[in-house]
Design a protein around this nucleic acid. Structure first.
Lengths: 106, 106
DNA sequence: CTGACTGTTCGATTGTTGTAGAACAGTATG
DNA sequence: CATACTGTTCTACAACAATCGAACAGTCAG
């Protein structure tokens, strides 16, 4: 990871809502080591992660378009990797970037 | 450290220039464990840290007022602690905040 | 094929940030 | 006490970010 990427990463995490979204995905990805199961069955335990965009709106109180925007920012910073497959929205943490955060100040 | 402080911390580090300033102070404070010696003698090795505000301008090419502003932001985020004592500008890392950064994603 | 859902893109609006310069206040030094 | 430095504060402005609603395109159940 180039040091020049840190500002970009921190900028992505500097917005409260975006940090919430990221943390949801991060925590979910800790629970399920299997990649791609971040938005899994309908009866998951996590308030945010059990629902995709539209339902996430109810939780963090933002419009769908805003949430879409935040997801794009997170992807842009290399923090998450998302892909749509039909109606399924697959989304996972980018381990490489997470590791470089852990390396920061080490 | 309350989780609510993370956005603030990351925002402070999301600006490239501000991150440079912070890293200079951080690295300097690793070298000299003695607090308060961040801007020490005139012949220190570190380009940025051997000089205070005005000379720092030459290194990172910003005006004094802008650098002052960035220092304030860093202080505001709890990342550094600064105090003036006559013409001496003492500045050190806030260990507590640094630790909470290290705790992030742990 | 229609209707009801996805998430996305666009445009507008409002708020925030990064920056410089001028005017300032404190402090050494001659 | 001038003058030449500190860093600070204020003001202004351009650039950027967060947000929404509307219009959109893909998908799937009936």
């Amino acid at each position: 990871m180039k040091p020049s990427n840190y500002p970009k990463i921190f900028k992505a995490l500097s917005n409260e809502q975006r940090l919430k979204i990221f943390m949801s995905i991060y925590e979910q990805s800790l629970k399920s080591s299997k990649a791609g199961s971040v938005f899994p069955a309908k009866d998951s335990t996590c308030c945010v992660m059990e629902k995709a965009f539209t339902k996430m709106c109810e939780c963090i109180n933002l419009s769908r378009s805003t949430i879409s925007h935040h997801f794009k920012e997170l992807q842009n910073a290399g923090l998450i990797i998302c892909e749509r497959e039909g109606q399924m929205y697959r989304c996972r943490i980018n381990e490489e970037t997470v590791n470089s955060i852990k390396e920061f100040l080490k």
